[in-house]
């Protein structure tokens, strides 16, 4: 785990360290089993092509899981995730990089807690944003 990040360390515009994932067909099968989502567009290429998709595509929930991984890794042991959301705007294909990014868009105190709002997004290697969303987190204070 990285060093703990504190509320005092961040400002609007601070970037969350990017996380690069490389989903494979095997990972999609594992995710299907673990989540119970057996929709064939995620592992059956013939089915996906018949649905006029470019091939099997990454589950939206799996791409959002990667974004959640990026955020919770950054939060460390003392930060907490209050909200995570994503809109699935494009498709991530297998066997190519899926790049997770985030940055702080707001920091504020509320109910005695130190909160931050993050813009989060996933990109494919062409730079298209395939998932866009937000996270709301609490961070510990050095004070």
């Amino acid at each position: 785990m990285p060093e703990q990040v504190y509320y005092e360390d961040i400002e609007v515009g601070s970037e969350i360290p990017a996380l690069v994932k490389y989903p494979t067909t095997m990972q999609l099968v594992k995710y299907a089993g673990a989540s119970g989502d057996y929709y064939q567009i995620h592992y059956d290429k013939d089915f996906a092509l018949a649905n006029r998709l470019p091939g099997v595509i990454v589950h939206g929930w799996l791409a959002l899981s990667f974004l959640g991984q990026m955020v919770t890794h950054w939060l460390g042991k003392e930060g907490t995730l209050l909200r995570l959301n994503g809109s699935y705007r494009g498709m991530n294909k297998v066997h190519e990089d899926l790049i997770c990014n985030g940055k702080v868009t707001k920091k504020y105190g509320e109910d005695g807690r130190n909160l931050a709002r993050l813009e989060i997004w996933a990109e494919n290697p062409q730079g298209d944003k395939t998932v866009t969303g937000n996270a709301i987190v609490t961070l510990p204070s050095r004070g």
Binding site: Y39, N51, R52, H59, G60, W61, L64, T80, L81, L82, R83, L84, N85, G86, S87, Y88, G133
Partner: peptide, 12 residues
């Protein structure tokens, strides 16, 4: 006949 997931939002 075709189905996609559009968005997800979780509040903890």
């Amino acid at each position: 006949t075709r189905l996609l997931n559009g968005s997800s939002d979780l509040e903890y």
